[in-house]
Amino acid sequence: MTEALSVDLAETSLRDLHATLHALPKDTNRTLWRVRNPRGKHSVAVGLDAPISLRIEGHVGYYAAGMNARASVLIDGNAGPGVAENMMSGKVRVRGDASQSAGASGRGGLLVIEGNAGARCGISMKGIDIVVRGSVGHLSAFMAQEGFLVVGGDAGEALGDSLYEARLFVRGRVASLGADCEEKPIRPEDRAALENLLERAGFSELRAGDFRMYGSARRLYHFHVDNASAY
């Protein structure tokens, strides 16, 4: 087995780490990396754009794996706000909990959170898929446009407020739905997508049949005075 290339953030600056990772060619064979001693630093492993596997050994601050493309990033700890924000593709997995705005405005790829996620999980998501083993906080999927948000636990208040075309699956209790968000019947293609996401996330103990699905009622798609009280 190839040994992972190691970068110790106790000795190496973030700038040098990124200079190294961003310089990797698209077809690099230096594909296994580990980052030690992140110690809650912000913006660790941001802007990656190579088919590498990178393991961050510890907790990270804001925006870990932000704008990730193609890379597979494992955060072996907790993540601060905006983990995998604006992710384009690839995969990001958080072993612990994630703070607010996880996966914000993500446009592709898969974000897996094995613990819980804070408020605004999946806010403004634009095609990313997010699977949370635990619960998510209030205003999750606010103004979410595309992609799937799967919540194995409960969802906080105002889930899916001002939702566009993203699909939300929640296994537990939903504290309340936000404006223009409603429960939808699960079609076979929705269930297939959910099963696929649970499998890719590795959450085999979660059964697709236990989830409810929520989406946009599309009543606010066109501004109309009769809806003024909903805004």
Binding site: H42, S43, V46, G47, Y62, Y63, G66, M67, P81
Partner: peptide, 14 residues
């Protein structure tokens, strides 16, 4: 937060 966001943008764009 803005300071952290600016740093992220700088890290991404070298």
């Amino acid at each position: 937060d803005l300071a952290i966001k600016i740093e992220e943008l700088r890290e991404i764009t070298a």
